[in-house]
Amino acid sequence: MQSGQEMLEDTISSCREISQDLASQNESWAKSIDEIVEKFEEISNTFFFQTMPSVPPTRTAMREAATLLEAKTSGDWASFETQISTLISSAQTVIEKAGMKGTTLT
């Protein structure tokens, strides 16, 4: 099973590809993706991503980033518009969970 950290790195990598030349299509989309990359780099290698609980939310973000990249590659901008909202929401979940509020390890 891929670790949460590996999944986060894959997500960052997909987002970087998505971001390339995206501004020419839509500046707002490009800015959102860049923000995700920036925030994910900030939380990369933190304790959460060494733990198993990081897997489900990070995997969701990783898969959605891959789907978004496919939409960009195929030029399916109608799908892209829907899927970028989904990715933003998932990215916010990852960032929130990375704080591990209330975590008890026994």
Binding site: F47, G99, T103
Partner: peptide, 18 residues
């Protein structure tokens, strides 16, 4: 005692050793 794990780990103040 493990009491600091959930406090220090998530804040990046301690690498908890697997």
């Amino acid at each position: 005692c493990l009491g600091c794990f959930g406090v220090m780990g998530p804040r990046g103040l301690m690498d908890i050793p697997p």
